[in-house]
Simulated scan of single mutants.
Amino acid sequence: MQITGPGVTATGRIQPVTITITDEQITAVEPQTGRAWDHDGFILPGLVDTHCHGGGGFAFTDPDIEAAASAAEYQHRRGATTVFGSLVTASPDDLLRSVRMLSELCDDGLLDGIHLEGPWLSPAQRGAHDPRWLRVPDPVEIDRLLRAAGGYLRQVTLAPEIEDADLLIDALVEEGVHIAIGHTAASYDVVQHAIGCGADVATHLFNGMDQWHHRSPGPIPALLAAAASGQATVELIGDGVHLAPETVAAVLTMLPPGRVVFVSDAIAAAGMPDGSHLLGTMPVRVTGGVARLDQPGDEPPLAGGTSHLADQLRLLAGMPDVIAATTSTPARLYGLADRGVLKVGARADLLLVDSAFGVQRVMRRGRWLDPVASS
């Protein structure tokens, strides 16, 4: 199979190419000199979403493996051809069960990794996590989760100020797991210490953490400084809800290329009508596409996202480094050398988008996924 049109090459440039696909792999990427294109928009690598809880009414915490599989397949159809299944704070038994189940989906090729967002978080910055199950690290539980993950545990979000955080960081780094700092009230110095111990990611920077105060700087400037020096990569949720576009633009301008990863943080409510939903065990209310905990108050905490990574790409496409931040940067960070790029040997995952970066067709493993739901 061959596809011709303006494509994002391995160098990050958009230029006319002919891409040859054999079975599940890209076998040639050659310059195209004519205008006999199959596609007049752009050909992009499949998007890489490393922080996703579900979508289309399905969640990765669902005890039914078919429902969890449907969450992955839904995200594939929306353009995220590489997905990490993210799990929120839960009881030890439920968390272990979910990790085992997602490991099976990784074996089957539906998921590409597992991300634990909790349960080792700050009660003060727990956001939409169930406070009943926040806890300090237990070496026995850590070992059980690592074995259940079968090598697919890619990232763990933790608050570095909790008791025995260093024990947890050391154990996970030794197993090749990326440590993400998030849902934290840590001081600048505590975050710096965690980075020195091996933490290298910021979970949805600005959200779920103490804010930047000029006399008490906290985690945000520490994480930005680490990213600026090449020690860390920061996640941003660029959906226009979690962060103002001006904040996103400032971070992209502030940091060198390759230090920002966009994530959806999508929950089961992504792509669904407004109404009542769940995030793990916590009730969520979606109003106007914004998900918040279903509890009294003028502005309950945000509870994940309802956008898709492709929506963020379209919204932010005019900003620098956005294509890389949704494709090659996360792939490189997590050692997925055959994802996020259009090059010989890469997995045949790609998107056809129009001139406004709206998704028209999605290919995963050399197979078109139809129909693509409208955004």
Rank of each mutant, 00 (worst) to 15 (best):
T326N: 11
G176H: 12
E163G: 01
R147E: 14
G182W: 01
S91P: 11
L153H: 04
D93M: 03
R100F: 00
K343P: 06
S187Q: 04
L309Y: 15
S122T: 07
L205V: 03
F357W: 13
Y188F: 11
P371V: 09
L224W: 06
Q155D: 00
L110N: 06
E73H: 12
I169V: 15
R339T: 05
R285G: 03
I195V: 15
G85K: 07
Q15M: 06
I195H: 00
T9K: 00
P371Y: 01
L302M: 14
V341W: 03
A67I: 09
T81W: 12
V8M: 15
V372I: 11
G358R: 05
A165Y: 00
A194R: 00
Q231R: 12
I114S: 07
T203Q: 08
H129S: 10
K343D: 15
G85Q: 07
E161H: 06
H115F: 12
L302K: 12
M1F: 06
G41S: 11
Q360G: 03
S103W: 04
A36F: 12
L44M: 11
M101P: 07
L302H: 12
A149H: 05
M363F: 01
E246L: 13
D200K: 00
V8F: 10
S187A: 06
L351S: 07
T281C: 05
G150C: 05
G5S: 08
I323D: 00
P257V: 07
G358C: 03
R154W: 05
T203H: 08
R13Q: 15
A310P: 13
